[in-house]
């Protein structure tokens, strides 16, 4: 089994914000969603996910609320705040610029 791709510093924040832009979700849900959409390329470990969630919460970009899951379990759901939505736009723009630059570089050389 190949080592899961290490996420670039800051990329995880972007992924979390993007995932939460669709709907409020709990930590496990975020893990699954990222894994599914990336086709198992991106695996998020709880050791990185939860500290990131707590950091984002402390920065006021996401909001945490306890709620029932479909299965009737209590879980902590995170949702995007207005500030978080703006942050997502900023980070997404930045990411596109960065990845575009890297792609251009790879194509030319």
């Amino acid at each position: 089994m190949g080592k899961p791709t290490d996420l670039l510093q800051g990329t995880l924040d972007l992924l979390i914000l993007k995932t939460l832009a669709l709907e409020p979700m709990h930590g496990w849900g975020i893990t699954l969603r990222i894994q599914q959409i990336s086709g198992d390329v991106l695996q998020v470990q709880p050791g990185s996910l939860y500290p990131a969630l707590h950091r984002l919460e402390h920065q006021g970009w996401i909001l945490a609320k306890w709620a029932q899951t479909d299965a009737g379990r209590r879980a902590k759901y995170y949702s995007l705040t207005r500030a978080g939505r703006q942050q997502l736009e900023r980070e997404a723009k930045q990411w596109r610029r960065l990845s575009g630059a890297v792609t251009t570089l790879l194509d030319t050389v």
Binding site: G27, Y50, A75, K76
Partner: peptide, 28 residues
Amino acid sequence: HRVRMALRSFLRRPAAERELDDELQFHF
């Protein structure tokens, strides 16, 4: 908001610890 968060997590440390526990247990 950040000041409030800082103070809340500091003042409600036992509750915060419990929530952290619950959250991780749910995950696993």
